[in-house]
Each structure stands twice: as structure tokens, then as C-alpha cells.
Nucleic acid binder design. Structure first.
Lengths: 345, 345
DNA sequence: GTGAAACTCTGGATCGTTCCAAGCCATGGT
DNA sequence: ACCATGGCTTGGAACGATCCAGAGTTTCAC
């Protein structure tokens, strides 16, 4: 249009490539190259164009660029269901680092919402409208519906969580070895002199639950300790954690408990509170997730801390490769958690 | 182009408006109208076009639409700084409802990250590249930098948090009346028979802190109770909450404490834990924010619960109006919190 | 039966960017 | 002096949608 803009700084309509080109006295394409392939330009031309860009405060229009390149530089993330009344806010930490790492790689995160009852809801629309370049899927342990569906649509995605039910899945994934987590938690308690160490975990049909439980069993057996009468399986809620603790404390009188989640650990704390037992002195407790609750409850709950920051960064790395080479098939990455020791043990 | 696509369902390239038009035997514009202004079409034509749309699984390409209409249907939200070691994860609840409400209004949320040291970082790029239609600003109590800057750039935005330092600000905002929150918290304790009720709050230069404190003072004075020696001002951390509680419990021996945050309340709990005092029996405690920690710690901490869900919905409503009528100037909305009573009082 | 208004539908231009193929201009070997 | 070479730059076309002005069709009053 060649309509000269006053300053470009506070003007209502942002400057375009053509404006920059005119100011610098070059063609549109040269400006585009200056932005995307600076090494194609002669040094003096580049400098001139850069000056014009800075002067106008030019930023390429995202919609136009997306349209032409068929890439939005957006990564879709469906909001995990919010669980009130539990201790688990770890998604916060994950999302935070993910957004940060994605920004460094030139991607922004598109948060969307889907009907909690339908794990697929929301993906389709974004995919069809080419609104995002890829997805991050988070709740793979609830069954592989999302990943199989996305694969069938040839959508690009990475998952935080191994493909539990599809050993042949080819998408990149990152997960945390929580069997190992349960193992170091149990061994920590053994080192502290405990030998009657109970397990409070989730129902048998929870893949995650059985995974964690196996770590406890392995540690116990390695050290020649019996596990009979020491295991309990229940819902992931405070009240059922309390009920399980009540039962096991009455029956077997363990001196320490390993819980499959901080939520269950809080249930145990409720049981201890009622019995007027002192946490960390009369009974030791270890939780999972290293949630804010574990961090702040006096005297602090020892907890298995998943390396969410590292997981987020690994996922972004995988995404970059995936988007650079469409055929990219990464091996999954399994990360090891660490134990954060606090007053409860 | 008129290249016929095989099925449109699993094909790599999504169907376009032209594909639909060809299949339905109408022009592109007619399809566009079918999507955006269905009442302009004759009933039978509309049905025919709809059929074609369904058959091909057509969704308008977002980039193309954005380019032409200059609207991205994205709302920018800068990730609030993550505070580990505090009890405050309320942003989670807010963001969740916000994303949900925004989705209903046809908007998605673009999460971005900015240098924590620079409250403006990140906004500029998105604004210049016309990546978002508007922003939601959240931390207004840290000073009005973001809002004044956005206003000067003529950006559209709403804020969660009143314009503390600019009484003449014209953007829509929603906030929670936390002076009222402190008031009902204090009155709740008075009703339970307490009269020596201490306040543990933030430093004097914290606008939020003084706001909440005034509610406590008001309630105390209304009931003819003295506040001398009962107020304490400190950092928002567990350790300083504990220190403040230690000091005030030694000096004035209050029977109840109102804390400006759940984090401070947890500090108090640490102090009680050390002194072997029973929470809710020997000493009553009320917190702020109704965080997961307050919900889960035995026997539960009574806490002032901000209506984050309602706030998020109000903000989306304001956004819709703002984007519909650019000159829209809403009065701010002030919401009242409620008290969630638990075992700690 | 006729003209105008109302209703439907169409084709071309456009949003701002990148892709593509071709053009320009020095350089250098013959 | 000439043509090939390669580095830089250019104008036109395209991405997929909507805006706009106009064309075709129907409806209805006179």
C-alpha cells in the first residue's frame, strides 16, 4: 500500500513487510530473507534492512506466516482435569517449565479444554483447523485412546507418560520411573532402621499403582523383609488413605508407611492426627509427587520427587526433532526421580 | 486448484473452502456464508453445503481466517511466577475455569513465558505479531506497569486484580474483596468465643497485605476488641510465618490467629508442631486462599476462599464485550469471598 | 405484464507472508 | 571480447479465508 506510517510505535496497524521494504529501499523478499535467512544477504544490505526493522518495530504477522508455511508454532496442551481435595498440583510445575522451554524453542503453548468425560474432545477441532503444530499428551496411563487416535489422524505429538498399553507405539515419549521411586523410598526407610514398612497404594487396575508397588516389593525382598499383611490398595483420596492407614495400623502395626501419592500420605496424617501419634517420631511416612503439601506440612513429608522440569525439557527437545523431521521416531526417555527427605522420616 | 481429495478424512492436507464449494456445487463465498452467516442462505442450499462440510470434515483454517479478519481468537496469558515452598497454587484453579469459559466463548488461551525480572517481557512480541486478540493480566498488585504499558500500546486486556495504583484506569477488571475476607474470618473466630485474635500479615508496602489487615482491624474494633500487640507483619514464607507465630505466641498468648495467606498459616502450624500444641483445640488458625494445603492438612485449615471460578467467568464475559465493542469501558467487578470452615477453628 | 425491491449467489480483490523462477551484476577463465 | 559462474535481489503467484460490489433470481404491488 505504501502508506507511510507515522512512527510505527504506537500506530494502530502494525507495520508490514512492505513497509520495511519501502523504508529500506529493497524488495519484500529481501526483507523476508533478512528475517529468515540473514546469510543470503550482503552485509551492508542486511544492516540497512535491520535498521528499518528496528525503526518500525516490525514483527512478522503470525497469521500470514502460518498460512504460507503451514506451521503455527503453537503446541496444543489439553488442561488436565482439576482435582480438588487432593494434594496433587504437580501439573503446575510441569506446565511451567514446558512453557518456558517451548518459548526458547520458538513455540508457544495453546491451552485448551475438553469435556472431562471424553478424552478425545477438543483435539479434533484444533487439528482440522491446523491451529497447532503438535500436541503434548499427558494422561497416558488412563489408556491409550488419545495416542492411538492421534496416530490414526497422523497428528504429531509427544507424550508425558509411556505408552502403557501399546508397546509398538512410535511417538516420542518421556516418563518417570516410579517403580524406582518406590524402591529408593523404601530403602531410605530401611536405612533408617525400619523393617515393618507398609504400602498404601492404588487399586490393582491402576497401571501406575502396580508399577510403584513393584518397587516397594522389590526393595523389601532384596533386604529379606516380608511384605505379608503390609500392603493395602485403595482409591486416591484422603479419606480412603485414612481408612487404609487406620486398618493397617490396627492390624500389623508397621513403623513406617510408603504411600503411592502425597494425597494418600495426607490420609495417613489424618489417621495419625486422630491417634495423637507424632509424624516422624512415632511413625515414618513417605509420599509421592513432592507436592506443595508435602513441602509445607510440618515437619515436612519425605516424598519422591519426579523430575518434571527435566521431563518438560526433554519433551520440548523431542518436539523440535519431530517437527524438523516428520519421520522422526525417538526412543522413549525414562527419567529417575529423587527422594526429598524431610521430617516425616 | 480443484484437485479432488480422496476422502478428506484421513488425507494429509485438510479440505479447504474450495473443496467444499466444489462438492456442494456452489461458490466459495456461499460456503463461507454457510459457516458464518447461515441465515443468508436458502434452506435447501444451506443443507447441501452442510452435507458437504460434514462429508469432508471441513474446519476453516485458522491462519487464513485470522489473516483476513485480523482476529486470532486467542487470549494471551502470561504464566504467573511459580512459587515453590509456598502453599499457594490457586492460579491453577483460576486458569482452569478461565480456559473453560474462554472455550465456551470461542477463544483459546495462549500461555506464554516472560523473564520473571521484567513484568513486560513477552507481551510486546505477541502484540506486534498480532498473535492474540487480548491479554489477561494477573499480578496487578505488583504495580501497574503492565496495565499502563498495555494501555499506552492500545492493547486490549482485562485484569484479574483491581488497578491499585491508577484510580483512573479504564480497562475492565475483576477482583476479590479480601478486606471483607479478613473480616468474616475474624468474625467467625469471635463467634467461636475467641477474643485475643492475632494477625499475621505481610509487610506494610504490600497493598494486598494492608487491605486484608484492615478487615481484621475493622472486625476487632466493631466488636470492641483490642488489637494492640496482636499484629505482626512479615514475608510470605513458611519460615517467617513460623517466626512471627513464635514471637506472638510467646508475647501475647492469643487463642486464635488470622493469617494473610495459607503459607503463613503453615508457618504457624510449624510453630504449633514444635510446641506440641494441637491445631484447632489449643489454638485456632484461619488462612487465606483455600489452597490444597488448607484442604488436606489434618484437621483441615479454615480458610478464606476466593471465588476464582466466578472471577474467571466474569473476566471472560468482560473480554467478550471488550472485543465486540472496542470502546467498551466496564466498571470493575468486586467479588466477595466465602469462608470454608474446617477443623483448625 | 412490468418495474422495483428483496433475496441469493458469484467472481475478483485482498489480508501479509513465503515460495519460485528469473533477472541483474560483478567476477574470472578462455 | 565473450560466455559461464555464482552471489544478490526481484516481481509474480500462492497459502485459504473474508470483504465487496455486482449479477441473477424471485417476490410482490400496481
Amino acid at each position: 500500500m505504501a502508506v507511510p506510517r507515522s512512527s510505527g510505535h504506537i500506530s494502530a496497524a502494525p507495520p508490514t513487510l512492505a513497509d520495511v521494504a519501502e523504508l529500506a529501499g529493497v524488495s519484500r523478499q529481501t526483507v523476508s530473507n533478512a528475517v529468515n535467512n540473514p546469510d543470503l544477504l550482503r552485509a551492508d544490505t542486511l544492516a540497512r534492512v535491520q535498521d528499518a526493522i528496528d525503526k518500525l518495530g516490525y514483527q512478522p504477522n503470525r497469521a500470514a506466516r502460518s498460512l504460507r508455511t503451514r506451521a503455527s508454532h503453537l503446541i496444543g496442551l489439553r488442561m488436565p482435569a482439576l482435582q480438588e481435595g487432593t494434594a496433587n498440583a504437580m501439573m503446575d510445575r510441569f506446565v511451567h517449565t514446558f512453557v518456558e522451554a517451548a518459548a526458547e524453542a520458538g513455540y508457544h503453548v495453546l491451552l485448551f479444554h475438553g469435556d472431562p468425560a471424553d478424552p478425545l474432545d477438543g483435539y479434533d477441532e484444533l487439528l482440522r483447523s491446523t491451529a497447532v503444530d503438535a500436541f503434548v499428551v499427558t494422561d497416558t496411563h488412563l489408556g491409550g485412546q488419545q495416542t492411538t487416535w492421534l496416530q490414526s489422524r497422523r497428528a504429531r505429538f509427544v507424550s508425558f507418560g509411556r505408552p502403557w498399553t501399546q508397546p509398538d507405539a512410535k511417538h516420542p515419549w518421556v516418563d518417570v520411573d516410579l517403580a524406582y521411586g518406590a524402591e529408593i523410598a523404601t530403602e531410605h526407610l530401611i536405612e533408617r532402621g525400619h523393617s515393618k514398612i507398609a504400602w498404601i497404594g492404588w487399586h490393582k487396575d491402576s497401571l501406575l499403582g502396580e508399577e510403584r508397588r513393584s518397587g516397594w516389593i522389590h526393595a523389601m525382598h532384596t533386604h529379606g523383609l516380608s511384605t505379608t499383611g503390609l500392603a493395602s490398595r485403595t482409591e486416591d483420596s484422603i479419606s480412603s488413605g485414612k481408612a487404609a492407614a487406620d486398618a493397617i495400623l490396627d492390624e500389623t502395626q508397621p513403623t513406617a508407611l510408603v504411600c503411592a501419592s502425597d494425597t494418600l500420605a495426607m490420609g495417613v496424617l489424618h489417621s495419625l492426627f486422630e491417634r495423637r501419634l507424632r509424624l516422624g517420631e512415632d511413625v515414618a511416612v513417605v509420599g509421592f509427587d513432592d507436592s506443595q503439601v508435602a513441602q509445607t506440612v510440618p515437619p515436612g513429608i519425605t516424598s519422591v520427587r519426579p523430575p518434571l522440569e527435566e521431563a518438560a525439557r526433554e519433551l520440548v527437545k523431542a518436539l523440535e526433532e519431530l517437527l524438523a523431521t516428520p519421520s522422526y521416531a525417538a526412543p522413549g526417555v525414562m527419567l529417575k526421580p529423587a527422594l526429598t527427605v524431610r521430617g516425616s522420616s
